[in-house]
Design a binder for these strands. Structure first.
Length: 502
RNA sequence: GCCCUCAUCGUCUAGAGGCCUAGGACGCCACCCUUUCAAGGUGGAGAUCAGGGGUUCGAAUCCCCUUGGGGGCACCA
């Protein structure tokens, strides 16, 4: 299915790392384009020169690619070449286009030069605030004669900004998601600046010029843009371009219900990635934030989501970000990964653990592969592998002697049990060091002493791993290996000795 | 202050007038499985569908009001 009339875009500005909200907006545009067979384009809105950096640009592009979101037009790599018939797709490389459009507006008197200084503007705003009035441009420069303009220019010394005339009237559109919205232009805050006094164009202007130039048919963006839409519609009209269809997505919210922010939530996609969330899980979760296929399925692949995506089913109300549900979904997807893939994905997290000293050596792929049957279903995130079985790759295990003693036992019994178990395990050689071989003789020991298997196993578990929660004991001992198992049992027994009261 | 907007379990959601004494999932609780932890299985608690008026034979679903929440109002994007 292909529909060349449908063109959507994501237009982030590289003023910060890829935000989870940007990723979600990109995802919905991507889903919409892929579902209907339209075109998805990527444009960098880097006109805020002071805050835009190549590093953020790279972070955004890499992050989106990591998620599996691809675009048909736009820069494919940070600093790389733009592809697509409307290149360039970086706004700072399109300044001539905005300048030409601004001149047209100026010539038609749809915009005018504004000589107001920041001080004047701030004073206006303060006065309005004091009078409990909504902030609004007072129109000081709206109807100046040529002489007056010259006078104001002479007084300020800096070049004028360009202000767009907001005409009276009601702007209405049929929103893809929220149906009809009408806004009176008197509530827009007056004529707004489209070109700074230093000459660079502003957001409201560049989006419209570019969406027009790039033939964007559907503008799907966050709900926080609803108030900007009438300004954009006015600009499309002034520029003589057909107005695209708008759709405003519900916001992703902090747990307290406010718009998701760095202050209250983790917002950088890369941070989720660093924590071991995988693309399948994050994507699946993000897709369900404000959308549902209307069925009772929860775990869907990107392809399945594309197939089922329907913009009519997108919600109007915001959705709180629930990390717990993300973790569950992530675990679902980790369980679906095949062995080689999982090993590949685990490697960076093990390396990171080695780098910061949480483990002493890096396990081989085969070591990790042997562990997969017992750890794969226990990983909510990839990074959790270190917490789960990191003890296998630590040279000097920190051991709390008190933890080694099971609840129903005392130190003396535990010591005796560990020594006995050590003796039994030592009888095995490298060949019979298998889970099936290790367990029966220890069960016989338990039987002979009238102990509980759970107590013995717990004592051995803590002695050999330092923790009370681990994957199944005998698989763990096999992974640890005969020598280290025996050494750790010895060390635990020794550590216990002082605690034995006679 | 002004404008816009939203409203189903704690959370994500199903629901587009009768199928709803409101379904699923996460989380929570219990039980089963079990050497711990998970996973899995079974069951449970959990929403008078924000409140109040209508419309209708019939409303979570349509209309109005109220309340509550959110977003926005830059020479940021």
């Amino acid at each position: 299915m292909s529909d060349p009339t449908i063109r959507v875009r994501i237009a982030p500005s590289p003023t910060g790392p890829l935000h989870i909200g940007t990723a979600r907006t990109a995802l919905f545009n991507f889903l919409y384009a892929r579902h209907v067979g339209g075109t998805f384009l990527f444009r960098l809105e880097d006109t805020d020169v002071a805050r835009s950096t190549p590093e953020f640009e790279r972070d955004i592009i890499d992050g989106l690619h990591w998620l599996g979101i691809t675009w048909d037009e736009g820069p494919d790599a940070a600093g790389g070449l733009d592809k697509g018939p409307f290149a360039p797709y970086r706004q700072m490389q399109r300044l001539a286009i905005y300048a030409e459009a601004a001149d047209r507006l100026l010539d038609a008197d749809l915009a005018y030069p504004c000589y107001c200084t920041p001080d004047e503007l701030e004073a206006d705003r303060k006065a309005q605030e004091a009078a409990k009035q909504p902030p609004k441009y007072v129109g000081r420069c709206a109807n100046l004669t040529a002489d007056e303009r010259a006078a104001r220019q002479a007084a300020t010394a800096r070049p004028p900004a360009t202000r767009f005339r907001v005409r009276p009237g009601v702007i209405a559109w049929n929103d893809l998601i929220r149906d009809r919205i009408e806004i009176d232009t008197t509530n827009l805050g007056g004529d707004f600046v489209i070109v700074r006094s230093e000459g660079t164009p502003l957001y409201h202007f560049t989006v419209v010029v570019d969406d027009a130039a790039m033939a964007v048919s559907h503008v799907i963006r966050g709900e926080d843009h609803v108030g900007n839409t009438p300004k954009h519609i006015l600009l499309f009209e002034a520029l003589g371009h057909p107005v695209p269809t708008f759709g405003h997505l519900p916001l992703i919210l902090n747990p307290d219900g406010t718009k998701m922010s760095k202050r209250k939530s983790q917002t950088a996609v890369d941070d989720y990635r660093a924590q071991g969330f995988i693309r399948e899980g994050l994507l699946n979760y993000l897709a369900y934030l404000g959308w549902s296929p209307g069925t009772e399925e929860d775990v869907l692949s990107l392809d399945e989501i594309i197939a089922k995506f329907d913009i009519d089913k997108v919600h109007k109300g915001g959705a709180k970000f629930d990390i717990g549900r993300l973790e569950w979904l992530n675990g679902q997807w980790i369980r679906k990964l095949d062995a080689d893939d999982l090993i590949d994905r685990l490697r960076p997290y093990l390396q990171a653990a080695l780098d910061d000293g949480r483990i002493s050596r890096l396990p081989s792929d085969d070591e990790v592969r042997a562990l997969l049957p017992v750890i794969q279903e226990r990983l909510p995130t990839l990074a959790a592998v270190v917490d789960l079985v990191g003890f296998l790759w630590i040279d000097d295990l920190a051991l709390d002697p008190a933890l080694v003693v099971p609840k129903r036992w005392d130190a003396a019994t535990t010591h005796e049990a560990l020594v006995a178990a050590r003796g039994i395990l030592a009888a095995h050689d490298a060949v019979t060091w298998e889970a099936d071989e290790l367990e029966p003789p220890l069960r016989e020991l338990v039987e002979a002493r009238s102990w509980k298997a759970g107590d013995l196993f717990m004592a051995i578990r803590v002695a050999t791993t330092g923790r009370t929660a681990t994957p199944p004991l005998f698989d763990t001992l096999v992974a640890l290996g005969r020598e280290r198992t025996l050494a750790r049992l010895d060390a635990a027994a020794t550590a216990l000795a002082p605690a034995i009261v006679r």
